[in-house]
Design a protein around this nucleic acid. Structure first.
Lengths: 198, 198
DNA sequence: ATCATATTTGACAAATTTGTTAAACAAAAA
DNA sequence: TTTTTGTTTAACAAATTTGTCAAATATGAT
């Protein structure tokens, strides 16, 4: 029996390539052949390392979910004041979106096709914490009076949508890559001004 | 040569079913067989009426695009004051989203796979008009000072995202259908409060 | 060097999906 | 009725995609 692998470069290579294709280039329907070609390996290796195409998909999806949740948790449970947390979250989100612009979209389409949620408990803990801090911020007059859920929806929407919808926006508004990057950079302040009263 | 058809019920039936599957249920990868089954017709009829699967897809996509643009145009070129136009737009969007929750998402994924835009000219005219009215509203202090493009992004994001992301949100936040409907209803006022200063 | 194990490859089989064709069927026109 | 036109079906062919298997190759340990 072998518990260790001498060279798992290929396995990692395949997984990363799949990640890049899905999240980086939006090729949600990439075939095993396309993935193998892009990774520069034989197609059969995908079956060898991951048993099936679906298994590979699930794995990439799970990893992404975990990563995103950890990232968010580390911000939300930090010692930063509420408003700074949101700023941090925006920064992180845009950074992520720069490398993997289609990730959010992929997550949604996966959920649409009946996908379960991984660490539900962790998410609940985080939401609870958020709700508490949100109440305080609202009392302080930092935020317009509203249900916390509405604030969350506002926040996620303002951050994620322009990233997920980028190709649509760019084409509709005739914006080149450089111009859109600038707009996204400017957005951090815009979002903060939109979310907070003062 | 035949310019008229005695009974185009089947053709319409297929098109509507495809529309429902794509936009209503989010089955973006539905096969011709699935579409035919859902429509209760023989699969070959899809080829008979639309020549190929792709042609059917293109047609449904084009129709949806046209419809959405017409809808928006009729509001934007109406005699309503700026703020009322936005309200109208929100109402229309939510109504649309109720029947076809996955439409926005579908549009984006189509654009991601390199799709052209239909009536570019019409869109440009509309944007120009919007920019003009936006400038006025900003001068009047109705809106925080920002680039019009940022306002548009804010608006579309706040409206469309919670609709497109509904399955994700609902599962994450443990909300049943009724509760989410209520949240969407409440959102109109929230969005207006978020977009406008007074 | 030999052996055992891990990795990679090519060839093949199976499944899925799409598109074509010829024939059956229905309905209106001649 | 016969003909014509339009519609629907079943059977087939082609293409695509996935998964399996045995053989080939590499790599490290003995």
């Amino acid at each position: 029996m072998s518990t260790e692998r001498k060279d798992e470069a290929t396995e990692v290579q395949i997984k990363n390539t799949a990640k890049r294709l899905f999240f980086g280039e939006g090729k949600f329907n990439a075939t095993t052949q396309e993935i193998a070609d892009a990774a520069g390996v034989n197609r059969t290796l995908i079956n060898y390392y991951f048993r099936s195409r679906d298994k590979l998909f699930d794995l990439v999806f799970k990893d992404a979910q975990e990563y995103e949740q950890k990232r968010t948790e580390s911000i939300m449970f930090s010692e930063l004041p509420f408003k700074a947390k949101i700023e941090e979250f925006i920064d992180e989100s845009f950074l992520m979106a720069k490398e993997y612009p289609y990730m959010e979209l992929y997550m949604v389409t996966q959920f649409n096709q009946g996908c379960y949620f991984k660490d539900e408990e962790g998410m609940d803990r985080m939401l609870k914490k958020f709700y508490e801090e949100f109440e305080v911020a609202m009392e302080e007059g930092l935020i317009l009076k509203m249900e916390p859920i509405q604030f969350i929806i506002n926040m996620i929407s303002l951050i994620s949508f322009p990233v997920a919808m980028r190709p649509l926006f760019q084409k509709t508004m005739h914006l080149d890559d450089k111009e859109y990057e600038r707009i996204l950079t400017d957005r951090k302040q815009i979002i903060m001004d939109t979310l907070f009263c003062k």
